[in-house]
Design a protein around this nucleic acid. Structure first.
Length: 771
RNA sequence: GCCGAUGUGGCGAAAUGGCAGACGCAACGGACUUAAAAUCCGUUGGGCUUUAAACGGCCCGUGCCGGUUCGAGUCCGGCCAUCGGCACCA
């Protein structure tokens, strides 16, 4: 940021505190203090630490997601989301007033639904899928179980397609794009309707391989599937009920851990395979998930590993319908081949077979092409205290939004803010606050941690605005940067790859669709920052005792050394271990910079070194200086800070023993050094009695003409091996180089009279003689 | 299991297909010092070899195997290892 500012760009370098949410609240509970208090203390602590490191943050633009002036607009954005729907015809969000259907509540982008959710008893709240890692809460690592609850959801799935497609134009690492794409998990296939024997209802399944329909020998429903109640036969009821209860008790962790062994129960009912018209049994099993696709599958044991395992365990028929290309055993083959035993598509390669049978199904109204996503709607409510209240009230069992002029909805100041443990939000304890009017009560849930962090980058542009979440002009101004995006460069860790970045893109797109923003994507360029490991190359953690505290390092070596070392360690994107010795090395470099320009007199005080004079550059000094300007400039552009520092070390080494050091060279160098070591460079800038403030100097430019030399050392290779070097004029022609090389005694000897078959000359670099 | 990233000295790392190891750390030697620290100068991938010593000379070397090329750390194919992500997604 310092560099860009020196280059005359307008740079935002603000600081934000995302202080709502579980981590802050858990900390408060642990220390027995109110989260409002702990938040204030922690912000103050971090702020002083950052100031000491010398980050050039713009404290005018500081924001805090827990301040009413901020979360008023978080709630405002929620209202916008609540009051809009996704129009599939225009492929974008529109105000709910444009919806012509009967029940607007069924299409809102924010809606209430009774869904199986991740309930964490320990935290006393539900969690988004994204916050559950291996069946445990990401915060705290507590067990999570699945349980149906009435919750607020955000319809992010409506944007699944665009969230994938619009990744295309972004300047992001391919890996992160992929991570997002996989998380959204698009798969194309078909939905097929199976009739149920002796029943009116049908079962819809989703499959990516409709071409294997003839091989579907049974149907499996998720245990929680709503159809189960209707179809189970009397004699199967006890078994089904028992199985469902067992499944419900399992946490997600157990459900996946026990995945090795398939379980399931026959419902007693049969479906009709629309292709073969055979009766096939309907089972329930927990390997089929309610949340994905239709919560029901056509099981094709011959060509699906899981179905095969299940079929073998429960002795269900296996029928092969795809012939593998290389004469392998068709059973268990899941790739693409040629359709067999499937009258209407026999002989067709899988892809064509898919197209053919889908068309066949569509003609008969038995199915249709379909696309499915792994992405689920975003579970947006939490039964906690420390978060933004919803700007929503309940009246006669229906929700309605508040007016914009009623914002912000400030949470009540609760003494006892701890989770109730029953699933009832803590806000229920604020009896007065709840009552909105005689017949309306407030929504008791609060928003998740992510709500505030979803749009903070917008607020940075215009943090004080109390008329709008971000002023139109301010937004356009910052959005029209020289990269066509809102945020030119976003530096963050991979841990945000799916959560924060996906949510923020979603909100941004909604606001863009509704006309509040000028660009459809929030972060045009994204660079991943590698984490810094402890000295033992392990992740820093309290339990390992390998934490490096910046305060201590700064205490000992100074903020400049700390900053420079972090940049010198290696490439930005890489994981790298901390090394105290490394800091020492960088600290020595900075000391050499100081002594290059300053010397200690007999009284022991530092004064400008007599070697620093107002003299002309020598030729080689000129070259070194310009090479350094060039390298440092280019390396900063490409974020290769480590090699930029290397070049500055070379510069200092080259000038160290000079008889006279041109003061102009030093001034230029200090400007280059300033983004890396702001304290040292500005102090030296003053000591050199330089004009003005170093941070206001124009960035130096270099001239290629100082970089070229008259003579250049060329390498002579014989058969690709370096055998000799010779100094040539840079103007030497190819012929001259060849002649010189062939005339070289050593080369002559190596050639031993043989004449070269081929000679390659790379100008100013090398000549390769092939014999 | 699937997807992705990475693999170069004792260590952190450099290298538009063109002199592998810049720069830094550590180590060793030297100067300064009564001494130490600090500082400065030098050496430092491995092996072989010439020599009184030095300069020098040769071979090997970027995880492993193969390919493309006059030339590969870099491009292509296959494998191995480490790390990260996803994981009953039909």
């Amino acid at each position: 940021a310092r560099y860009k500012r020196l280059r005359g760009f307008n740079v935002l370098h603000p600081m934000g505190w995302d202080a709502f949410g579980l981590p802050a609240e858990q900390y408060a509970i642990k220390t027995g203090q109110h989260p409002a208090l702990t938040t204030r203390e922690n912000v103050a602590k971090f702020k002083s630490q950052l100031k000491r490191i010398g980050f050039s943050y713009d404290w005018q633009r500081e924001i805090n997601t827990t301040h009413p002036g901020y979360f008023k607009w978080t709630q405002w954005i929620f209202l916008k989301i609540y009051n809009s729907w996704f129009n599939p015809k225009t492929n974008k969000a529109e105000p709910i007033s444009t919806y012509r259907g009967e029940d607007p509540d069924s299409v809102r982008l924010a809606y209430v639904a009774d869904v199986p959710v991740n309930w964490c008893p320990e935290l006393g709240t539900v969690l988004a899928n994204e916050e559950v890692v291996e069946g445990k809460s990401e915060v705290g690592g507590f067990p999570v179980v699945r349980r149906p609850m009435r919750q607020w959801m955000l319809r992010i799935t409506a944007y699944a397609e665009r969230l994938i497609d619009e990744l295309e134009g972004l300047d992001w690492p391919a890996g992160i794009k992929l991570l997002q794409r996989n998380w959204i998990g698009k798969s194309e296939g078909a939905e097929i309707e199976f009739k149920i024997d002796n029943h009116d209802a049908g079962i819809r399944v989703f499959t990516t391989r409709p071409d294997t329909l003839y091989g579907a020998t049974y149907i499996v429903l998720a245990p929680e599937h709503s159809l189960v109640d209707q179809i189970v036969t009397e004699e199967q009821w006890p078994a089904v009920r028992e199985y469902r209860e067992r499944t419900a008790r399992k946490s997600d962790l157990e459900r996946t851990e026990l995945s090795k062994e398939k379980t399931g129960v026959f419902t007693g009912a049969f479906a009709i395979n629309p292709a073969t018209e055979e009766k096939i049994p309907i089972w329930i099993a927990d390997y089929v998930l309610l949340g994905y696709g239709t919560g029901a599958i056509q099981a094709v044991p011959a060509h699906d590993e899981r179905d095969l395992e299940f079929a073998r365990k429960f002795d269900l028929p296996i029928r092969e319908v795809v012939q593998p290309p290389a004469g392998e055993d068709p059973i268990g083959f899941v790739g693409e081949g040629v359709a067999i035993n499937s009258p209407i598509i026999d002989g067709l390669p899988s892809r064509e077979a898919i197209r053919e049978i889908t068309a066949w199904l569509e003609e008969r109204g038995l199915g249709k092409r379909a696309i499915n996503y792994k992405l689920r709607d975003w579970l947006f409510s939490r039964q906690r205290y420390w978060g933004e209240p919803f700007p929503v009230v309940w009246e006669n069992g229906k929700h309605r939004s508040l007016e914009e002029n009623e914002l912000p909805v400030v949470p009540p100041p609760l003494e006892d803010f701890k989770p109730t443990g029953t699933g009832e939000p803590p806000l229920a304890k604020a009896k007065d606050w709840i009552r909105y009017s005689d017949n309306a009560t407030r929504e008791l849930n609060v928003m998740p941690q992510w709500a505030g962090s979803c749009w903070y980058y917008l607020r940075f542009c215009d943090p004080q605005n109390d008329e709008r979440f971000v002023g139109e002009e301010a937004e356009r101004y910052w959005a029209s940067g020289h990269h066509p995006g809102t945020v030119d460069l976003y530096v963050g860790g991979t841990e945000h790859a799916v959560l924060h970045l996906l949510y923020a893109r979603f909100w941004h797109k909604v606001l863009f669709d509704l006309g509040y923003l000028s660009k459809p994507e929030p972060f045009q360029r994204l660079v991943n920052q590698g984490i810094i490991l402890g000295e033992d190359s392990q992740k820093m953690s309290k339990s390992r005792g390998n934490i490096v505290n910046p305060d201590d390092v700064i205490e000992q070596y100074g903020a400049d050394a700390f900053r420079c070392y972090e940049m010198f360690m290696g490439p930005l994107e890489q994981m790298k271990p901390w090394s105290m010795r490394g800091v020492e090395g960088v600290s020595r470099f900075l000391a050499r910079v100081w002594r290059l320009m300053m010397s200690e007199n007999q009284a022991g005080t530092w004064e400008l070194s007599p070697t620093v004079q107002d003299v002309d550059f020598t030729k080689s000094q000129q070259k070194t200086l310009h090479a350094t300007i060039k390298k440092v400039t280019e390396d900063i552009e490409s974020l290769s800070f480590n090699t930029a520092i290397s070049q500055m070390m070379i510069f200092v080494n080259a000038f160290t023993n000079a008889e006279a050091i041109p003061i102009a060279a030093m001034r230029t160098f200090l400007i280059l050094l300033n983004p890396f070591a702001p304290h040292l460079s500005s102090e030296l800038w003053e000591k050199l009695k330089s004009p003005g403030d170093i941070t206001e100097q124009p960035w130096p430019s270099y001239d290629e003409k100082f970089l070229v030399e008259d003579e250049v050392e060329m390498v002579v290779q014989v058969n690709g091996k370096v055998r000799e070097r010779m100094t040539m004029s840079i103007h030497a022609s190819e012929e001259e180089v060849q002649a010189a090389a062939l005339a070289n005694p050593k080369i002559k000897e190596l050639l031993a009279g043989k004449s070269p078959r081929k000679i390659i000359v790379v100008p100013k670099k090398l000549i390769n003689i092939v014999v």
